[in-house]
């Protein structure tokens, strides 16, 4: 009994060790983004690399020793590249564009996909399965296939070089339809029937019954959409030509002025673009998880 207990404890300790080591490996790159972003400008390329930025090591001791000026000086030097990004380079504008585009596209997708998901899940009409499978089958097609025609199309529609060109195409993504359908299938049809018997219109049924019941799925879809639009890179890079229209990732790419690579500045930019997603994730973790499990289960 005792030896078995020791054995079990040993297993548990080993499990924890593996998990912790792997977590460190997993988080190392992100840690390195933030560390590099906060290093003093002349420390970025130093050898050996500073694993802990000076500001973290020195700010509080210096401050407590009463050397406030020195402490504040280090603080301000550490945030120099962040400051440069916010004052000299159009980062606030890019940030605003990214927010605007991501929010608009997300709201649009929530509306369209919940409507489509609803009829696919709960209605019978000619061509339903056909239309559904046509849409779903395009999920397999690599995005690069449509890049060129999409570009020509957006040009012809006259929305190139406006934020519409990055808001509208994501609305066509079909993953959300699939997700909403999977979820809405679990809503008891009796509820819908009951509403109909009460004389509710189709739209009212959708708005008053289906939408409130689908809140978890909507939250999930909203977050996943927000994330994918926020992080999208190649398409905005191609269609947005004016620096005041850039979204954050495109702006970051232009920072990578080929001949004057500045890792401190780049990592600061990377950190700024990563922070909102990290916050969203930490707050809405369970919806991320729900979305993944919903999308992955059988239908």
């Amino acid at each position: 009994m005792n030896s078995r207990k020791i054995f079990a404890t040993g297993l548990r300790v080993m499990a924890y060790c593996i998990l912790i080591v792997w977590a460190i490996i997993a988080l190392m790159p992100l840690y390195w983004v933030f560390t590099t972003a906060l290093q003093l400008p002349d420390e970025v390329l130093s050898m050996p690399p500073k694993l802990i930025p000076t500001v973290v090591k020195k700010f509080i001791p210096l401050y407590l020793q009463g050397d406030k000026d020195q402490a504040l000086h280090i603080l301000s030097e550490s945030f120099k590249s962040v400051r440069v990004l916010f004052t000299d380079i159009g980062l606030p504008k890019w940030f605003f564009n990214s927010v605007l585009v991501s929010v608009t596209a997300t709201l649009g997708i929530l509306l369209l996909d919940s409507m489509a998901g609803y009829v696919f899940a709960k209605k019978q009409f000619p061509g339903r399965d056909f239309l559904f499978w046509i849409m779903i089958s395009t999920m397999m097609i690599p995005g690069q296939v449509t890049l060129v025609p999409m570009f020509i199309l957006v040009t012809k529609l006259g929305i190139k070089n406006s934020l519409w060109s990055v808001i509208l195409p994501p609305l066509a993504m079909v993953f959300g339809v699939f997700l909403m359908r999977q979820f809405m299938k679990t809503i008891p049809t009796e509820l819908i029937e009951a509403a109909r018997i009460d004389g509710a219109s189709e739209f009212k049924t959708y708005w008053k019954i289906i939408i409130p019941l689908s809140k978890p799925a909507l939250a999930t879809l909203g977050i996943l959409t927000f994330m994918s639009v926020w992080n999208s890179f190649l398409w905005p890079l191609i269609v947005l030509n004016k620096s005041y229209l850039y979204t954050l990732p495109v702006g970051l790419k232009t920072l990578q002025d080929k001949n004057l690579v500045n890792y401190g500045l780049l990592m600061s930019g990377a950190a700024i673009s990563a922070i909102p997603m990290i916050i969203v994730f930490l707050f809405f973790q369970r919806y991320f998880i729900k979305g993944l499990t919903l999308g992955g289960l059988k239908g």
């Binding site: 060129v148 020509i152 190139k160 080929k258």
Partner: peptide
Amino acid sequence: LVEVPWAELGQKLNIAIAGMD
């Protein structure tokens, strides 16, 4: 004026040409 970084000039120009824009 459209401001384009050197590194992207070639690609953007070619995309614009492809779109006849």
